[in-house]
Nucleic acid binder design. Structure first.
Lengths: 269, 269
DNA sequence: GCAAAAGTGTTCTTCTTACACCCATGG
DNA sequence: CCATGGGTGTAAGAAGAACACTTTTGC
């Protein structure tokens, strides 16, 4: 897994202050990109990011809508001197404004017909050629994201993973594969730090797990198991305001959480 | 995982009859490859294969030795109309003579300095440029392999994974990552079909697992657990000729084995 | 006061681990 | 005959699954 610094903290994520969206805004830059992008980016290699968030008890995925076109995953290209991981980090920052995101490479998609129906209006451009795409998934805190379309898109918004529309090329497969990867990773890595607010309740955490797994879990067993993993701190406070009995708040123990992330856990949901 | 046809059987693997090693043999072809390979292959993308075999109670890995150079993993490039998986399949066939091999993509390596010390005798050639490499591992039956160097190499031979020499670039890391991937896959996939002869004994299978995991396992518990997975068939015969009590022979139940491969198992070694 | 959600422990079952004795074979 | 490896089963411990009652709150 990748963290953009050694801490799991995200000190620069709050609000949008100081974030430079390094994207091309006008059509001159778009033309430059299409006709001269190969001066900057490696040909034939792209990065696609499946960005997951959690909101309203739904697992969300951030999608872009192409101008007069279908929806797709946020993606990008690899600069000549940039690592592939850094490309994914850059894409994530450009689309969400976030840094220090939990990012994981899960598969590389390289079938020659994966971009079926690719339009060839600029057939000679590097961009109309075949691309091999390296898939990453990210887990981000929904409320901190400022969705931002790229120069090819008009819209950038969250979709419920259960209701995503038709996606371009093989992007639906990529998304499903990312989901599988997240579910598998749930077995040996703690999840939640980047998906939940700082303080959260046990039922909220359980709902997150249930949503990712798309399956109901037993309340008592869930609590026992999560607490046994020993990376939560139970707070004195309860969440007030909701109907019904006020649940306790918890937060992650950053140190233990990081350790569990690196170390791995033995658990099967 | 990838099988080159729907069966896990390897009917074409025995001996070398009819295998066409599609490699370049003389220096004209080598020159063609260096200066015009980019007409055939995608630039900047390569495939590296970590080919594991099992022999003499050792986990082996197939390595190539470059002319006047270090050892490296067998690798190759992706043809313009070829899927990345097929490139790996092609590399495997060219180096081992085998088809229908168990092949698994495990990670893509894309750091810009991963090929540290890359020689630039043909600095203008596509081949001296930066490459992003897609890692595959393969599990093959040692005795059926006919190691075959490629046009850049003088030697192709098996090494004990515990004794591999210094490898070029980041190939040692790639190998170690492949080992991790195999060990993880051991948790939810049966292993052995492509590593052991058709008939084998329980101690042999256990030795395979112990070698992969680099850890001793309890004889009785191993047997219970493996048999509970229900993809072995116990034969009436025993293995004769060895010293000591003759152990029973087993074979894989092809149907159940394939099913377990697709379905996954729940097990933690 | 009632419906809906949250707090909390115990039992049963299953899986995992640890462990020992007898048997066959070659030298 | 003995050293070595192989065949086999059981008992204890750990982990997972199933499960119920009481409390709090808003309406």
């Amino acid at each position: 897994m990748i963290f953009q610094d050694s801490s799991i903290d995200c000190p620069n994520n709050s609000a949008n202050g100081g974030i430079r969206f390094e994207i091309f805004m006008d059509s001159k830059e778009l033309k430059d990109f299409i006709f001269h992008g190969d001066k900057v980016f490696l040909p034939h290699v792209s990065v696609d990011c499946v960005i997951f968030g959690f909101h309203d008890n739904e697992l969300k995925v951030l999608l872009l809508k192409w101008k007069e076109g279908p929806w797709c995953l946020p993606g990008g290209f690899v600069k000549y001197d940039e690592s592939v991981d850094d490309s994914a980090i850059r894409v994530l920052h450009e689309r969400t404004g976030l840094r220090n995101i939990f990012l994981q490479q899960f598969h590389t998609f390289g079938h020659p017909t994966r971009e079926k129906g690719k339009k060839t209006t600029h057939a000679k451009s590097w961009i109309s050629k075949r691309f091999i795409s390296i898939g990453y998934y990210a887990l981000v805190e929904f409320s901190k994201v400022n969705p931002h379309p790229d120069m090819l898109s008009t819209e950038c918004k969250w979709w419920d993973v259960l209701k995503v529309p038709t996606l371009i090329y093989d992007h639906k497969q990529i998304m499903n594969r990312a989901l599988e990867a997240v579910r598998l990773d749930l077995n040996d890595h703690p999840v939640g730090y980047n998906l939940l607010p700082e303080k959260f309740t046990m039922p909220e955490l359980q709902c997150l797990y249930e949503t990712i797994l798309n399956e109901k879990l037993d309340r008592r067993n869930f609590q026992k198991r999560i607490l046994a993993m020993d990376f939560l701190v139970k707070l004195k406070e309860r969440k007030i305001g909701g109907a019904h009995k006020a649940p306790f708040l918890y937060r992650f123990d950053k140190k233990k959480y990081s350790h569990a992330l690196k170390q791995g856990l033995k658990s099967n949901w």
